[in-house]
Amino acid sequence: MAQPYCEKFGFDDDRIHQRLRWLDFSVEDHVLARRLQTEVIRPNITAIVNDFYDWLDSVDEVQEMLSGGFDIERLKATQTNYVRSLGMEFDTPEYFEARLRVGQAHAWVGLSLSLYNCAYYWLSQFIITRIPDHLRTADGDGRRIESFLHKIICLDISLAIETYHVAQVTSLEESLARTQQQKDRLRVAASTDSLTGLANHDAIIAELELALAEVAQGEHTVAVVMADLDHFKAVNDTYGHLVGDKVLMEVSRRLRAALRGFDRVGRYGGEEFLLILHNATPTSMKHVTERVRKRITDNPVKLPDLSLKVTMSMGVTMVRSDETAEDAIARADTALYAAKKAGRDRVVVA
């Protein structure tokens, strides 16, 4: 029979026997377990559970928790079943499974481990007070039964601690994951243009500066492209800024699709874009830039009841090993201006 909680918390046969060995359980303890149940617990089960819940009723933290809509009678019935099984077949996977399940349930509802330990103490006291007088005599077995009770309570507490530890570690891991996700979202939001989804101005400049540092170390070559949509002001003036925004979004999608996987593109500002072409050569930068221009120009941007022909002018330059990001952008921008002056919808190399 599958024991999911034993599997979850790593209690195979060897670990079960190890835990029993730690508490010095023996085969003879099964006799004491049966006597504990038949002579102490079961004849007094209702009184023991009522005493336990009277104590719980005196604990403010428990009352605050129970005020959340718990069915007290159902909880008492569950507690009754738990106490009636205390110590019975303690060396079986089924016993460990049931105790781990109980501990996990209390961890889930938020009962503190300290309070849980105190509750076990009081439960043992309420059981001890029900040991009949004839077992308390010098030749009686009251001390042996009480010793077994303490031992089995320790076993149950130790299993509860296992579940609380894992629950707390899991909660911590989930909390850390949520924090990391929130940090990632904030980082992405801080570096992403909200309209186009491209890197924003600061982020693309930062990427260019990193690329320039690699160029300065002779690790690889980089080309910088300044790109600008032609006559975009006329689009906004004629059709409105909402249409202009949709054009920018579609152009951004086409830019991403046209570039190689290791190239980068960001919105430099307005209708201007900055492209970073990694591992570039004079030939490859012209090829990639022309492909990008064609992707923008060859097909109109289709909107509901509207089809707009858009073109893009581009200036491109190979980055030099001794220049700054501002220097590279300035040279690419000069080439862009030349493309505009030459009639737009073209690539000019600086």
Rank of each mutant, 00 (worst) to 15 (best):
D139I: 12
E162G: 03
H150K: 09
R136P: 06
H150D: 15
L159D: 00
L135I: 06
E146L: 08
I161K: 12
L159Q: 00
K151I: 12
D141Q: 15
E162T: 11
I161N: 10
C154W: 09
G140E: 04
L159G: 00
G140H: 01
R144I: 05
F148K: 03
I153D: 03
D139G: 05
R143F: 11
H150A: 10
K151R: 15
S147D: 15
A160G: 15
E146P: 02
C154Q: 15
I152F: 02
F148M: 08
T163F: 00
T137P: 00
D133P: 04
I157S: 09
S147Y: 07
L155N: 05
S147A: 15
L135Y: 12
I153H: 01
S158N: 11
I152Q: 02
G142T: 10
S158K: 08
L155D: 02
R143W: 09
D139W: 08
L135E: 09
D139R: 14
H150V: 05
I157T: 14
D139K: 13
T137G: 13
C154D: 15
G142I: 11
R143E: 12
D133I: 07
D156A: 10
G142S: 08
A138D: 11
D156Y: 03
I153T: 13
K151C: 09
D139P: 02
R136N: 11
I153R: 01
G140P: 01
D139Q: 14
D141H: 14
L135F: 13
I152H: 02
R136F: 08
S158C: 06
C154M: 15
L149M: 06
L155S: 05
S158V: 01
L135T: 04
F148G: 05
T163W: 01
D141M: 11
A138W: 06
A138S: 07
